[in-house]
Design a protein around this nucleic acid. Structure first.
Lengths: 133, 133
DNA sequence: GACCTTGTGAGACACTTGTCTTAGGATGGG
DNA sequence: CCCATCCTAAGACAAGTGTCTCACAAGGTC
């Protein structure tokens, strides 16, 4: 197994642009980021994309003049890693605990609450037969 | 408001010892940590406690020979900060999304599931009256 | 062909994190 | 008093992060 690279915040911001747009050159990413309130230089974004590529988290393909970068890891996967890390570090690996704390500190609105109930029901209903979603 | 210090993993491990024991000297923390599988030198733990103190996250009091450290931030608070950071970075600040993802990737056992249902019910029931703690 | 424009590559540089070494102060046994 | 301990102070040092500068290549323009 290859080692899990860490994803620092600034790299994550760049990655998010790729998830949203599907792919981007350095300049496109830069513009998206700066439009969203960031204030980076071209070189900064280039460095971040380069580091992401070294970590295997994005891929590049030279199209015409510039490199075009595409994500090589999904947002789901990154979320999962972060959540697992959090569970591990602060919740003794117990997802129930996290959920409870989450609900206590961030109450859900009724719509979300019922979606959560549905999921819970499905979960306990399909105790031993279904496996898929 | 002072700036939120970051809490790196190694410092967090030391902090956890203080939460569990209430207070500890460098040596006590070292022994607890190493008994738990860590393999640090005395100086490492001393450095970590020192950094934590500079960040205002622990306090020290010289008792007899050695400093005795106590936590100045609660586990709850650290958890909250981490969760908030996660929500912010990867869930557009939407706790419902995180809960849903969590349930999807880490199914709860029935006991936990019903505890969660209770909390949900309380939440939607006491829309505007109770303020429990 | 000299000159922009847009790109890349290399690397600088300060700060943080992870971990340790070394020097020196206080304490207690002989 | 001198030594062995245990403690703190100071800081070393490599790797990772956050951000940028600078030199230089490829492609158009006149």
């Amino acid at each position: 197994m290859a080692k899990r690279p860490t994803i620092p915040d600034s790299e994550l911001d760049v990655l998010k642009v790729l998830w949203r747009r599907g792919r981007a050159t350095v300049r496109e990413a830069l513009e998206t980021l700066n439009a969203a309130g960031r204030d980076w230089s071209y070189a900064t974004v280039a460095t971040l994309l380069d580091r992401l590529e070294n970590k295997g988290l994005v891929e590049s393909d030279r199209k015409e003049l510039a490199f075009v970068y595409t994500p090589a890891i999904s947002e789901q996967e990154v979320r999962k890693r972060r959540v697992d890390g959090l569970l591990d570090k602060l919740y003794e690996g117990d997802p129930g605990l996290l959920v409870l704390h989450l609900l206590k500190s961030h109450p859900l609105d009724p719509g979300q609450a019922s979606r959560v109930r549905e999921v819970l029901d499905e979960m306990t209903a399909s105790k031993s037969s279904k496996k898929k979603g």
